[in-house]
Amino acid sequence: MKVERAVGRWLPLALMAAGAVMMVVGALRGEASAVLSKAVRVCLECIGIG
């Protein structure tokens, strides 16, 4: 029970930390720029044209 409670408490925090690290890694790889360059142009697929 104690283990279960500890996992319940720490697992989301560990996942959040992993997520933050992954975001930094992704940004350093240039993914944020890729998202930006896609998002500032009209996405024809998204609006049902392309």
């Binding site: 996942l15 959040m16 944020a32």
Partner: peptide, 24 residues
């Protein structure tokens, strides 16, 4: 868009964001 780009193939940036927001 990142998964489908020739350059990346996997998105640490967006998956990391979803992990952060989802776990919170």
């Amino acid at each position: 868009s990142v998964l489908g780009s020739r350059k990346f193939g996997f998105s640490y940036y967006v998956v990391g964001f979803l992990l952060l927001v989802g776990a919170l």
